[in-house]
Every structure is written in structure tokens, then in C-alpha cells.
Amino acid sequence: MTRVMDAPRIVTTKPLVVVRNVDKNYGSVQALRQVSALVYPGEVLGIVGESGSGKSTLLRMMNLEETPDSGSYTLDLSDVSGNLFELDRFARRMLCATRIGIVYQNPHHGLLMRHSSSGNVAERLLVAGERSFATLRAKAKSALAASEFPLERLDAPPIELSGGMQQRVQLAKAIALEPALLLLDEPTTGLDVSVQALVLDTLKRLQQERQITMVIVSHDLGVIRTVADRVMVMRRGEVVEAGLVDQIFQDPQHAYTQQLVHAKL
């Protein structure tokens, strides 16, 4: 059932992300049980499941915000090696600031609400060591443009922006350093439908034009169906089924996946 770990015969590229046998307990609650996942360069892996299924916990682990009780996590990058869960705090922070981008469900999560939007994006570049004001401004502008942020509002602070606009600032911040991996935690929840479409369209374009590898968590199956290439279905901390997006939606195997797919409006 766990096709997500099947070894390919034709595709010779190594997976960018390898998560193996991750276990995580919070007291007596088992949040993740023997969870494994592979993500190949340029693909979008969708993770679905009900609240409490462990999908967001897994995503936060990929962003190194949490450490599991056991298991390993590697990224196939030239300057990164070994089990990333074993990195110290400083190394984790640098890795997340430079190679991994994340967009949270809450549009203003991680934003400095009273700084300018371009300043918010530039801050990420500063962490990575960029110091030239002109370069900072130019790179921030280009990341905001790629996220379809209206450029006449570059200097507006997020506090003056709508949720959809804030989400785009978050996205620009996440992609400013051209991360190897982009993590998205319910990126469209709480946005109105037209803004949702815009965000999804932007993600798809980023995948196609920049070949950014993404992992997206959502309880909205329509979102997953639109952007994901492969899907992992989680329940109670376990992966119950994984497969190509059309197979998961058209021929779900597990009783829980069938229940999820049939419940979609």
C-alpha cells in the first residue's frame, strides 16, 4: 500500500526529500507512527487527512520546527548531509532560512506587521547574508512579483493588507531565496475563492517555471487535486494510502480514503 516508498526503475534522479520511519509522541498521544515519505525534485506531494491526522506535524518536522522520537530526514543537496533531525538549533535555523521555505495557514504568521511588505521579504535575504540595499530591494520586488503581489504596494505594511495579500507576502518571503523545498500548510484556508484560485495558480506556475519541489498539506481535496502530483493520505498519525493524484481520487483503496473522497462536495 505504501507506494510512496517504491523504488523507481526509470526515473534515475534521487528523491530530494527522504523521511524514514518517523515516530512522535506527545505524552500518551501518538502523533506520528512509522511515517515515511519520498519527494522527488520538481514534484508536488499533497498530504490529506482529517484534523489530528498528523499531517501538519509531519510538515513542521520537515521544517525542522519539531524533532521526532525516532526516524530520519535527509535532503539531497550538495551542501547538506546526514540526518537533519540531528542538527543543532543554529544549523537548523540557517538551513530553514536558506533552503526551505514555508507558508502557513495563518496569513500573517511570521510577518512583521508594521514593516513594509518588501522589508518583510528582504529580512529573509538579510538572514542569508545579503547586504546590498539595491540587491535586497530588487530581489524582494522580484519575489513579490512572482507571487502576484501588486507592486505599487511594495511599501505597505502587512497590517494594512487583506488576508490574501498577506498570504502573497508570505509566499514571496518563502521563495525569495529560491528554496529547494517549499512547504505549504493549508495555504488557501480562510481565503475567499477567487484568491484561492490565484494562490493555487501561482503555486502551479512556480512549480513549472522554477521546478520548486513542494509539499502541501490541506484538508481541502479540491486544492490537493489541483496542485499535487502525488498524494499521501494520513489518519491517526499513520499513512494509510499513497498514490498518484488521479488514482487516489478515482480509485481510492483504503476505506478511510474512500470516505474522504466520497465526502467531497
Binding site: P8, Y40, E43, R230
Partner: peptide
């Protein structure tokens, strides 16, 4: 075959024409 191989073959060697268009919003 592994899903990733199937995805690759669909991009390169195997086509499927259905009656239904899978249109994405704003494309």
C-alpha cells in the same frame, strides 16, 4: 511500477484522451 515512473511515462510516452477537460482556474 512506482508512481514516480508512471508520472514520468505519462509525461513522455503514454497519452490519455478523455471526454473531460481538467481545467485549472485562471489558466
Amino acid at each position: 511500477a512506482a508512481d514516480i515512473d508512471i508520472a514520468h511515462l505519462r509525461r513522455t510516452e503514454i497519452g490519455f484522451v478523455t471526454q473531460f477537460l481538467v481545467a485549472r482556474p485562471r489558466v
